[in-house]
Design a binder for these strands. Sequence first.
DNA 1: CTCCTATGTTGGTCATACCCATATTGGCGA
DNA 2: TCGCCAATATGGGTATGACCAACATAGGAG
Lengths: 149, 149
Amino acid sequence: MPVDHDHIRRTPDRIRDRPTWLISRAYARSSALLTAGFEAHGEGLRGYHYRLLAALEQWGPASQADLARDTGIDRSDVTNALTELESRALVTRKVDPDHKRRNIVTLTPQGAETLLELDTVLEKVQEAVLAPLTAAQRRQLVSLLSQLA
Amino acid sequence: MPVDHDHIRRTPDRIRDRPTWLISRAYARSSALLTAGFEAHGEGLRGYHYRLLAALEQWGPASQADLARDTGIDRSDVTNALTELESRALVTRKVDPDHKRRNIVTLTPQGAETLLELDTVLEKVQEAVLAPLTAAQRRQLVSLLSQLA
DNA sequence: CTCCTATGTTGGTCATACCCATATTGGCGA
DNA sequence: TCGCCAATATGGGTATGACCAACATAGGAG
């Protein structure tokens, strides 16, 4: 056996309990799980796609600029993600006849179906991320994180 | 005035209260503040550099592989970040005479000084991130996030 | 009618986090 | 002792999320 330089995973004190560190750890964990989930069942879709599908399902057809505002995604990233969703026939884009500079983006039935599938993937990821916490603790965490906004 | 398509910032229900979403929001916020802080006072350093300096300050000289393990940074990223730190004379690298494949990385006095300056920057960022919470809530949040590891 | 803003698009940047391949070193077991 | 294997440092590459600047153009406000 090699020497094993006492490889206990340790973290410098300066960093250990800093909220920004803990948040970045939690994010790394959750985004790794999300990526894995999308990879396994998501047909090459990512978080951006899910956010856009969710917004369309909830509020119906919208312009790209509105989608950008509702999802917090930059307009240019919305353009790219929509192009990918469109190529998979999950959404359609057509010019608004009343405002020709605008595209009206609409969820297709396949898009709605895909969203439901992704929901189950996402739900499993939530469970995996929160696994170490009790139900009460989970509620607390959600409440505290919500207030950081 | 333009029409203002009732631009209230809203988030789809599917996403709003999902822990992974809240975590990613918190991360976006905190990393934006961190980037701004480093940009203002950090001489072009980033999170990776801070983590490495902190590990070196706490445990003294170490090999790059050990630094990678202690900071959770990928070995290849450690190599790159150390090259930048070395070019700023914040650390030194020299081959371990007993194990020639290893580099011994040592914090320089300037490195230690820079670390102290960054500490104050980081402290301010913590305060900004946690601003909406009471002291008790902050402790709760830290405790809950710690358990996610 | 003119100006200004919103819109969609193109084409970049950056930080974090990974992965894989390679040369080299040196420990350990056969 | 020797050969194999593990660890090390490095280089190159990918992905995701976030963000920014520039641009042409359509339309609304004045």
